[in-house]
Every structure is written in C-alpha cells, then in structure tokens.
C-alpha cells in the first residue's frame, strides 16, 4: 500500500453547485484510461487478473467484474467515509471489497457457470487487487460519493482496457482466434476448415498463409509481461512526460 500514497489524489473539490457530469467528472473517467492508467502508469493491480488474459473473453468478463467492484466499493467507502474508525479502516475497506467480490462470484455462478469455472480463483483475487484498495485509500476516503464512484469506474475501465488489449494480442497470435468460448467466437487463422483463413487448404488461404503457425510463446504466462512492456514502451515513447525519472 505504500505506493498508493504517491498517487495523485485527483481533483478534490469543495464547491457545492456543479453539474452532475461536468468536465471535472469526465476527467475522472478519461484520465485513468491512458495518462494515469492504473497498470501502465500507477503500477497498481497488475496482480491477480493477468493470468486470465490468454483469451479475450475471460479478460472481458474479468474486466466487467473489476469495474463493478472498483466502482461500487468506492461508492460505499465514500458514503461511509465519515463513520469509518481510522484505526480499522483498512479492514473495513477489505470487508466492503470482499462482500462485493462475493456477490460477483455468486452472480457469475448463476449467470454463466462455464466462465465461472474458467476464472476459478481469480475472481476471488480481485479482493487483493491493489487498484481497488489503492483508489479507496487515495480517493474515496476523501471525496464525495458520486465523484468516488466515477473515479472507481474510470480506474476499473482503465484496468479493463489493458486486460482486454493484452487478451486480444495473446489470443490472436497465440490461438488464431478471438472471443473463444463465447457465443461470438471467431476462428480467424488456423490449420483446419473451421477457420476463416485455412492455412491447410488448397485454395488462397493455404497458398498465401501456408507458412503461418500460432506463436506458442503468446499463450505462456510470460507473454502477458512482454505485451504489457511493449504497451508501456509505446505509451511512454508517445508521451515522454510519462517516462520514469529514476
């Protein structure tokens, strides 16, 4: 949690009469998507969820779960912020998060059992995802409910964005498909007739792409690291202000 104190606390405001969704509110959501992205800039919450990024569909479900937990735990913590005893605030925050995660877990069991099976322990690990607690400590404990909710939403989305992007690259190059396991599964390139580009066929697919093979490195856990490193590289080369000074 030490790092969370270093995060910029966002905009704290004392003005009462403001539009419900003005410019400042919009920044709360858009800022974490890129320039203050939880993963690539804040270095929070890399933990648990990356292990599910070998496919897009589980990454997407995981992202939705994280967004839900992040937004609502911020909301509830902010609502309770003046009543929570300081001495036990970490435990109270953890209990709020754990409750929401349990709800997500039970809901998933009822809504989509196969994906619940696939994600197994990783849903539970959202509890210790530092991004959730990081935002509670850094923002929700000091801001009004609506802004905290938006901040949680924005950070959850920023996190989900990276998760899905990593899943996209890994599945496309590792398995030659997208959204495998979901109703909209698309098999793009591979050595059988099920794929849009059949690398084994006599026709155009085989002639042009006969050399193509899936990159097995992409399905290994380590590939998630490489893909994120490349994202960070591109992002910081694009915007040199973000470069790590140390």
């Amino acid at each position: 949690m030490a790092e969370s104190t270093e995060i910029k606390t966002g905009v704290t405001t004392t003005q009462e009469k403001e539009p419900l969704f003005g410019k400042k509110e919009r920044i709360l959501i858009t800022d974490p998507l890129l320039d203050n992205n939880p993963i690539t800039i804040q270095v929070l919450g890399v933990c648990s969820a990356l292990a599910v990024t070998s496919l897009v569909y589980p990454s997407l479900v995981m992202s939705v779960a994280v967004v839900f937990v992040c937004a609502f735990s911020s909301l509830f913590t902010s609502l309770l912020r003046n009543t929570i005893p300081k001495a036990v605030r970490l435990i109270v925050q953890l209990v709020i998060i754990a409750t929401l995660v349990t709800i997500v877990n039970e809901a998933l069991k009822a809504l989509n059992y196969p994906i619940y099976k696939q994600l197994s322990v990783y849903i539970g690990l959202i509890i210790t995802n530092c991004i959730v607690m990081g935002r509670l400590e850094a923002f929700a404990m000091a801001n009004k409910p609506w802004r905290s909710f938006l901040d949680g939403l924005g950070n959850g989305l920023g996190y989900g964005l990276i998760l899905v992007a990593v899943g996209f690259v890994r599945e496309l190059f590792g398995k030659g498909s997208l959204f495998a396991g979901s109703p909209i599964e698309w098999k793009i390139i591979g050595p059988s007739a099920e794929y849009t580009i059949n690398t084994m066929s006599e026709g155009l697919g085989g002639t042009l792409f006969g050399w193509y093979a899936n990159n097995n490195l992409m399905v290994l856990p380590a590939a998630a690291m490489f893909v994120i490193a490349v994202f960070i590289w591109i992002q910081r080369a694009w915007n040199p202000k973000l470069v790590d000074a140390s």
Binding site: A222, M225, I228, A229, I232, W233, Q235, P240, D244, S246
Partner: peptide, 23 residues
C-alpha cells in the same frame, strides 16, 4: 536502456524473461 522502457517497462520485460527461464 531506451528512456521509454526505463523502470517499469524493463521490470515487466525482465519478469517475462524470468518466467520463461523458470518454465
């Protein structure tokens, strides 16, 4: 190290390489 990779980017790359080694 290229400036954009300094710090965090390099840490990710190294972790990935260590992961492959441990594999």
């Amino acid at each position: 190290v290229p400036p954009a990779l300094r710090g965090l980017g390099m840490a990710f790359l190294l972790t990935g390489l260590m992961g492959v080694a441990f594999l």
